[in-house]
Every structure is written in C-alpha cells, then in structure tokens.
C-alpha cells in the first residue's frame, strides 16, 4: 500500500504554479526523500498533504484514505509532522509544550518521556523553550511529531540547525523508524549527501514539477558518467570514435565520451586497439546524487 498518494496535485498562486500536477507515491514502510532546491514546492506539497493548504486541483490520499473533511481527523491522529520552522510556545517548558500536543492528540502523557529520550532533551525538559538554541527547538519539533507513535511522519528539513552529531543521530533515528516502529517517513531536504544514506525512495521536484520518483537505486543508474580514455595516439583514436558516430571531447591528453553501456565500450576499446591508437586506460566516471540532482533540476527534464 502507498501511505501517501497524490494525483494531479496542483497549487496555483495567481498565474504561478507552486505545485504543478504532482503524482507522488510513497510506499509503506520506507523512508522517502523529497528533494528539491529552495522554492521548488516541497513545503507547499507537504502542507497540502496535511490539509494546511487547499489544493487548486488534484487529490491526496493518506494511509489509503482520501484526505477530506470526513477522514481528516482520523488520518491526522496517525500522522506526525514538522513543517517549515519548528513550532513552540516560548514561555513554556519543553515538557509543557509536549503536554499541549499530547492533549490535542489524545495521547498518554507517559509518551512524553519516550519522545524526550529519543531526541535527547530529557535534561532540558523543564527549561523554557524561549531559552533554547535553534537545534534544541528543532529537536523539540521532532519530539512533537513523534508523540503518539504515528504511522506516518512528514518532516520538512528536520536536520536544520543541528550540529554534525545531531544530524547523525537524527539520520539513525529516521532510518530506523520503518523497521523499529513501523512508521513510514516522508522527509524533505536539500542536503542530498545526508539523505542518500537513509532513504529508500526518492522524489525530485523542481519548479513545482516532479522530475523523478522511484527507488534510490534507480536514480543511481543515472549516475553513470562520462568515459575517460587515455590513448597513446589521441588524434588517431578520436578519428576512429568519430567514424563510429560518437561525440568526442578532449580533456588535456584524454578523450571523453558520453556514458556508454559496457558492451558498446568493449567494442570501442577493441576497435581502438586494432587501429593502433594505443589504449592505456579506460575510466568510467560516476556522478554523485548531487550531480544527478543538479543535472535534472537544471535541465528540468523528467527522468521518469
């Protein structure tokens, strides 16, 4: 089952589409990374999932049910969220803030100890939140989302303001959620290197449009980069390659070819060797997720 499913989801402000026909599908039991540059439409999409913002068009389903007035309360009871900046009442302590959320969610107050323990705020539970650092407020926001053990967590850049140790802890916590608590997680970020380590599924959005959605391994297939050939006689080699219909670029002494399948590459190496070009080295460059993301978002072309 998909815990989140949208079809044709749009949000229009005047003539500008902040979210443009997004068809998102988040499978149950996974950590789904929702990636996009600033202003891509991540937060707006997440707000529509929670009913904070009304879609201009399209439908939202959470946990297999339509997100409408009838189902809204039941769905939100099983959902935890942290959207935009962390929310808190600065004049109250962390414990009091969590008591308020526990009241509204109808959750046992004993759960407060559990979530404070998870985010390592036990020591500061009786301090006023107004005195907290940004990282501590972020952790409190996550604690509020975790109250009640929700089936679905929607987290908008949850590692903002955390130090490296905090980011690592948060990563470990989120990665373990499906396995340990049966919670599916939708997490947005623009810190791709950190998401890469914890997500199973990825959705890339830019200018309101979903450019890619699928398993991370599928995206990593796009990570195959240029082929670098080191030849004793590069001019001879270039001529052979051009006769084969390939676009060749020079990089100092090396020749660069676009990404090729292994079989095709093997054929070309044989042809080069036969032509006496003197093949010294063959290297396949791989793109990082960041490079793939930048390629996708700059070109704006869907990789589906």
């Amino acid at each position: 089952m998909n815990v989140i499913e949208t079809s044709g989801l749009c949000k229009q402000f005047g003539s500008h589409f902040a979210v443009d026909h997004v068809a998102m599908a988040v499978p149950e039991g996974c950590v789904y990374g929702f990636i996009g540059p600033n202003g891509a439409g991540k937060s707006t999409t997440m707000k529509m999932l929670l009913g904070l913002c009304h879609p201009t068009a399209g439908h939202v389903q959470l946990l297999g049910k339509a997100m409408n007035d009838q189902n809204r309360l039941a769905l939100l009871r099983q959902t935890g969220s942290l959207i935009e900046n962390p929310s808190c009442y600065g004049h109250l302590t962390a414990e009091e803030n969590l008591q308020i959320v526990a009241d509204l969610k109808g959750v046992d107050k004993k759960d407060i100890d559990r979530v404070l323990d998870i985010v390592h705020l036990q020591k500061d539970r009786r301090r006023k939140v107004g005195q907290y650092s940004l990282g501590m407020r972020q952790r409190l926001g996550i604690a509020m989302a975790l109250l009640g053990g929700p089936r679905l967590l929607i987290l908008d850049e949850p590692t903002n303001g955390l130090d490296p140790a905090g980011i690592q802890e948060m990563r470990a916590l989120i990665a373990g959620m499906p396995r340990e608590c049966g919670t599916s997680v939708l997490i947005s970020s623009h810190l791709l290197s950190e998401l890469e380590q914890i997500i199973d599924q990825v959705g890339i959005i830019n200018r309101g449009r979903l450019l890619f959605q699928g398993p991370l391994t599928e995206l990593q297939k796009h990570s195959r980069g240029d082929v670098v050939l080191r030849l004793l006689h590069p001019e001879q080699g270039a001529a052979v390659l051009q006769r084969s219909g390939l676009t060749v670029r020079r990089e100092q002494q090396d020749l660069l070819l676009p990404p090729l399948r292994d079989a095709r590459l093997a054929e070309l190496v044989q042809a080069l060797a036969a032509a006496g070009a003197g093949v010294v080295g063959v290297t396949v460059r791989s793109c990082t997720l960041e490079e793939i993301f930048l390629n996708l978002t700059e070109s704006g072309v869907s990789a589906q």
Binding site: R77, S87, Y89
Partner: peptide
C-alpha cells in the same frame, strides 16, 4: 512561533 502549522495539523 509558527504555531498555526502546529495547531491546524492536530486531529481536532
């Protein structure tokens, strides 16, 4: 404190 997001996403 951005608390509108908090209260309006509660199951009430």
């Amino acid at each position: 404190g951005h608390n509108w997001n908090l209260i309006m996403s509660q199951p009430v």
